[in-house]
C-alpha cells in the first residue's frame, strides 16, 4: 500500500500567457508508515503536489497511484481516494462552520452515509486522537476555542474519515510556539499510535527536523534534494540559496566550519552543537 507519483508534470493556465509549469519530473513513493516532510518556498509547487495526491487536481502528464487506484481514471473512485488521503488545508480553522464541535467533526462521516452510532463513535475517536476530552468539548462552539484548539478540531474532522494517509499543509502557520508544539505533539502521536502515514508540508525547517524521517525539498517545481533531515540540513548553504530558512544552530555550525572548526556538519540541536563545540575547543587547548 502506497501513494506513487510517476513522472508528474503539472501546468497552470496552459495555452495562455500566464502558463506556468508548477511541477515537473516528480517521482515519489510514500509508503505506509512513512513520515515525510515536504519543504520549499512559496511557489515551489508544494501545495500543487498535495492537491494532486488526493485527486483535487489532475496531473497534466504522469500518474498518481493511491493504493493501486490510478487517480482520475475512474471518476467514481475519486471520493474513495479523497477518503483514503485526508488533506488538511492551510488555516483549516476557517473551514469550521457548525454550531458545535461534535457536529462539525461529524460532517464528513455523515456524508459517507454511516449510521448515527458509527458516526458518533468516529467523532469521539477523532477528537480523542487530537487530544480532546470528548465529553467536555463536544457541545462547545468551535468559534469559542483558541487558534490551536480550532485547528485540532479541523484535523479531527479529517481523521473522522479514517484516512490511511494524512497530508497537512502548513499546520502550524500563524500559531505561537505553544500552539505549534501542541499541534506537533498530536501529529507525532497520530503517526505513532494510530499508525497514520503522515505528509507534512512546511517552510519551517526547524519543525520538520524534529518530526519526520524523510524530507523532500521542492524548488521550481522539481525535487531538488531528498534524504533524512540530517542529510538535508548539513547542506545549509544550498538551502539558503533556494530561499529556505535553516535552523540557527545549522547556521552557527556552518559558519564555524567555514572558519576552520573541525565539527560535524549534520547538527540539528543546541545540545549536539554544544557537545561538538566543546570537544573541538578542548582538543585545541589541551
Amino acid at each position: 500500500m502506497s501513494i506513487k507519483a510517476e513522472n508528474i508534470k503539472y501546468i497552470y493556465s496552459e495555452g495562455t500567457p500566464f502558463m506556468t509549469v508548477a511541477l515537473d519530473e516528480i517521482n515519489l513513493e510514500i509508503k505506509e508508515g512513512d513520515f515525510l516532510g515536504v519543504i520549499g518556498h512559496t511557489g515551489s509547487g508544494k501545495s500543487t503536489l498535495i492537491q494532486l495526491l488526493n485527486g483535487l487536481e489532475k496531473p497534466s502528464d504522469g500518474k498518481i497511484i493511491v493504493n493501486d487506484i490510478v487517480v482520475g481514471e475512474d471518476k467514481k473512485k475519486l471520493s474513495k481516494i479523497r477518503q483514503t488521503v485526508g488533506l488538511v488545508f492551510q488555516y483549516p480553522e476557517y473551514q469550521l462552520f457548525e454550531e458545535t464541535v461534535a457536529k462539525d467533526v461529524a460532517f464528513g462521516p455523515m456524508n459517507l452515509n454511516l449510521s448515527e452510532e458509527e458516526t458518533e463513535k468516529r467523532v469521539k475517536e477523532a477528537l480523542e486522537l487530537v487530544g480532546f476530552n470528548y465529553k467536555s468539548i463536544k457541545d462547545e462552539s468551535p468559534f469559542d476555542l483558541s487558534g490551536g484548539q480550532k485547528r485540532r478540531v479541523a484535523i479531527a474532522g479529517v481523521l473522522a474519515m479514517k484516512p490511511d494517509y494524512l497530508i497537512l499543509d502548513e499546520p502550524t502557520a500563524g500559531l505561537d510556539p505553544a500552539g505549534r508544539n501542541e499541534i506537533f505533539e498530536q501529529i507525532k502521536k497520530l503517526h505513532k499510535k494510530a499508525n497514520v502515514t503522515v505528509v507534512l508540508v512546511s517552510h519551517s525547517m526547524e519543525d520538520i527536523a524534529k518530526l519526520v524521517n524523510r524530507v523532500i525539498v521542492l524548488y521550481k517545481g522539481k525535487i531538488h534534494m531528498q534524504g533524512t533531515p540530517k542529510e538535508i540540513y548539513s547542506q545549509s548553504e544550498e538551502l539558503k540559496k533556494i530561499g529556505l530558512g535553516v535552523p540557527q544552530v545549522a547556521e552557527i555550525v556552518n559558519e564555524l566550519r567555514k572558519r576552520g572548526f573541525n565539527i560535524r556538519p549534520d547538527i540539528l540541536t543546541v545540545e549536539e552543537a554544544k557537545e561538538e563545540i566543546l570537544k573541538e575547543v578542548r582538543r585545541n587547548y589541551v
Binding site: D176, A178, Q248, V270, K274
Partner: peptide, 14 residues
C-alpha cells in the same frame, strides 16, 4: 511560552 534564539541558548550552555 516563548522561544529564545538558539544562538543565545548555545552561548549560555557553553
Amino acid at each position: 511560552g516563548l522561544d529564545v534564539p538558539q544562538v543565545t541558548e548555545l552561548a549560555q550552555e557553553l
